[in-house]
């Protein structure tokens, strides 16, 4: 598979590697991924980068058995909506666990993993996933 979406993935590296989002200094709302307009304040909004701690808890989850193309090797995996301690929610896999290990409210922290690969010869896309905190 050719790496056709290269620039698309590359642009997202700060967000995907380091969980850098942004925050509106006017209404104090935190965003992830970054927004270019604060939906609350619009023209009055003032957005500044914000790096999230990577700590959060499970808001909802599912064991995904039928996976999209490119995720076959990881199947089945637990996918979750994680609520970061700073507020924003993100969708990501919870690694190294089974469905029974996860509950709504389980504490998690960000880990760095391969998200997917463009075949054997294409680029590897890395980014955040989450691991359960013991």
């Amino acid at each position: 598979m050719a790496s056709e979406a290269l620039p698309l993935s590359w642009r997202r590296i700060p967000e995907r590697y380091c969980l850098i989002g942004n925050s509106c200094e006017n209404c104090k709302t935190n965003f992830f991924p970054t927004r270019k307009i604060c939906p609350n304040c619009r023209r009055r909004g003032k957005l500044a980068d914000k790096t999230y701690s990577g700590k959060g808890k499970v808001y909802s989850y599912s064991l995904v058995n039928v996976v999209p193309q490119g995720f076959e090797l990881d199947a089945p995996y637990v996918l979750a909506i994680i609520e970061l301690e700073e507020g924003p929610r993100v969708t990501a896999q919870i690694v190294d666990c089974g469905e029974k290990d996860v509950k709504i409210g389980s504490l998690v922290k960000m880990v760095f993993r391969k998200i997917k690969e463009d075949g054997d010869e294409g680029v590897i896309h890395y980014g955040f996933k989450f691991g359960l905190v013991k």
Binding site: L73, D74, Q93, V111, F112, R113, K114, Y126
Partner: peptide, 16 residues
């Protein structure tokens, strides 16, 4: 390693 781990991901984890 897990199916989604390689030398780069493990290096980052140790580095953190």
């Amino acid at each position: 390693p897990g199916t989604d781990e390689d030398s780069a991901t493990m290096a980052v984890e140790a580095g953190r």
